[in-house]
Design a protein around this nucleic acid. Structure first.
Lengths: 208, 208
DNA sequence: GCGCTCTTTGAACGTTGTTCAAAACATATC
DNA sequence: GATATGTTTTGAACAACGTTCAAAGAGCGC
């Protein structure tokens, strides 16, 4: 009956370490995309890639480490999306609107994976991961560059960037958790346009 | 040696149903306050109140039900706090600032418990709980009343309320997760003032 | 006394994250 | 070729978890 009495358990030579890291990260991302944070389990993740849980522990670490890998990838993808959105020679206000649109579109297209970045809270005693602060800084630098022509003062600009970023985050967060729809029928995209128009003191072009 | 061979297992008559609900809810809230969402476990919760886990299942339900009880309480406390904050005859703008201040102070004073409201995500198929939508609506109605003198048009006001609410939520969320401090040294309170001043188009009184 | 209902519980089931020690492979050394 | 070394991979085990089951205790009407 072709029963395998004792399988080999040594290295397979199919993946080197980096390939295995990518394999684990993408599989974990897929699990989160389909079933959210609660769908990401160590044993499940291991079985979807056809390895034993211990292999993940050896190469990546525990579930927190896996989550951070997924989040790092998500932030990099977001960064690339936003970069592409502002790569034009449009007016500063239109760039700001394009940035907000791209952000909210990204979130809407992948809500569960995006939520993981904000749902996952690190232990309060452990320091902030460097790569995380850097990724956040890169993204907000993007916003700062867009806002530079409109707000010349550095201090005021920094505050405006942080505030707008937080506001955008709030819109995205309430939208994905279906709490925004309870308050108003407008799309988060429309509300973001309202926010930017009012906050940046635009000359209120009705914008068709 | 006073060893209890077989303890009684029937009703104790110490609590009626409502008292037991309150006992469970407050104990759960305490666990979350001290150790966050991850510190809220069924067995742990049962042991802190001196009951078996099954008693909680019988009276309240599973962990999701317990979480929703805590969240309902949190939203009610927040509502009361905000009501008190706007109970004055100040100018509309000052009321809006007081509202934002009270919100952020509430969050800062109890970040873990407040976070639970937004961390807990219900299953995507199940409908939105009625009490939750109502609690949210009550709070935003408060904002709408404050903004009424400044934005007479109902549609525009509704959008402005939702946007400001989301923005405030974003500031609070990023603040509790220590992500705001990475971007700027200002307190969320200061950024909220900036937001409201710019969004409501206040005559930009420098505000000492 | 008996029976009914509600409360409370110990024990059990299945699953989880994580760790341990051993097995299997690849590679270097003799 | 044989032997040793180091890395990869794994099955098994451990402690804990959420949840369910059936039974035991307590109060109450009769």
């Amino acid at each position: 009956m072709a029963r395998v009495e004792k399988r080999g358990t040594g290295p397979r030579g199919e993946h080197n370490r980096d390939e295995f890291l990518a394999l684990v990260t993408k599989a974990a991302e897929g699990l989160v995309r389909r079933e959210g944070l609660r769908g990401l389990g160590m044993r499940r993740l291991a079985s979807t890639i056809g390895y034993a849980p211990n292999s993940i522990y050896n190469a990546v670490g525990d579930l927190d480490a896996v989550t951070m890998r997924v989040n790092a990838r998500t932030l990099a993808r977001l960064q690339a999306t936003l970069e592409a959105a502002v790569a034009s020679d449009a007016a500063p206000q239109d760039k700001a609107l394009a940035l907000a649109d791209a952000y909210l579109a990204f979130v809407a297209a992948d809500p569960q994976v995006w939520s993981l970045v904000y749902e996952h809270q690190i232990a309060p005693d452990s320091a902030f991961p460097d790569w995380y602060a850097e990724a956040l800084g890169q993204t907000t630098d993007l916003v700062a560059r867009v806002l530079a022509p409109m707000i010349p003062d550095p201090d005021e600009r920094r505050q405006a960037v942080a505030t707008l970023w937080a506001a955008l985050h709030g819109l995205a967060s309430l939208s994905t958790s279906r709490k925004l729809a309870v308050l108003t029928p407008e799309s988060p995209r429309d509300l973001a346009r309202l926010l930017i128009r009012r906050f940046l003191g635009a000359p209120s072009r009705p914008d068709a």
